[in-house]
Design a protein around this nucleic acid. Structure first.
Lengths: 163, 163
DNA sequence: ACCGTTGAGGAACGATCGTTCTTGACTGAT
DNA sequence: ATCAGTCAAGAACGATCGTTCCTCAACGGT
């Protein structure tokens, strides 16, 4: 019964994760989501309840899939150096986690729980590889630094802030 | 000439740094600033030009003062362990830097420049203390983790998000 | 004593936010 | 063929955003 959906829910969640990995929660508007995700405003609220609901769904998908893949990759590294290199090469592999940890986890317990899961997964993966204590922290710090201060040869032509 | 100011500019900048260290840039409204800083809306725009102007002033004050103090503290530590402990004890000592690096530096070159200054200062301070490579990254990662996942015995009664 | 200048006070602006409502198109089952 | 139920399309809502404007009070210089 009813009209069939014109969008793939899993694909919407995945695309949302990409958006939320690139900008702060408040920096991604519902208009942005509607435009880039190929899902209608109404369907978004029907399916996920709210912007936060979609954010949580995206975060959970990310922790379950992307972080799992990253952890497997790290496990295959020989030492911390190589693990760090692999983590950098994974591109946006840690970005969603970074943003969620810094800006949402402190004010949203459910986000904090997902962040906890992700960090534990990385801890466990790195534990099999290196004896360096706080290896996960170092990995996060490295990615943070790379994001904040990329080699600024270009001037990032697009995607200016909204206000 | 003219009516004398009813606020202390340095004090306003310092208080703004505290606010911006606690919440995301978009999470601190101009209303919040006006209410908590004891400066009038008009004076804020007259003195700092914009919300971003005040943010930059606060960040510069923070990098120059708080980070400098933190660096001196770190230099007095015996090894990385102790440096990490001192950094944690410094409370909000790294929080503003964390937020600025993750959420503003990627989209604001002037913020990125200040973040660079701060990171270099910490690098230099830690270099005199430990041979651990990426010590600064590890320090940031540790603080990030502590912020995201504090020992959640209490439920943080106040300061809920605005929307 | 007056005037030029500056800050305080607070209303008001247009834009954008997240969310909801209204309308109509499409579907499977009766 | 009809009807209940779901989704698409997009206008519209009140709230809040950063910023500006207008008016008056408080000062220094003449």
């Amino acid at each position: 019964m009813g009209r069939p959906r014109g969008f793939d829910e899993a694909e919407v969640v995945r695309a949302a994760a990409v958006l939320f990995a690139g900008r702060v929660y408040d920096g991604v508007s519902v208009d942005d989501l509607v435009t880039h995700l190929g899902v209608h405003r109404n369907s978004l609220y029907k399916t996920f309840g709210s912007k936060r609901g979609l954010y949580l769904a995206a975060l959970r998908w990310y922790v379950e899939h992307e972080v799992g893949v990253l952890a497997a990759t790290l496990r295959r590294a020989g030492d911390f150096e190589e693990a760090a290199r692999r983590a950098s090469d994974s591109g946006t592999g840690l970005d969603f986690l970074l943003l969620a940890a810094v800006e949402r986890a402190p004010v949203d317990d459910e986000v904090a729980a997902e962040v906890d899961r992700a960090l534990n997964a990385i801890d466990e993966a790195l534990g099999t590889v290196t004896a360096v204590p706080q290896a996960t922290a170092a990995l996060l710090g490295l990615r943070l630094r790379a994001k904040a201060l990329p080699d600024r040869e270009d001037v990032t032509p697009d995607s200016s802030p909204r206000r």
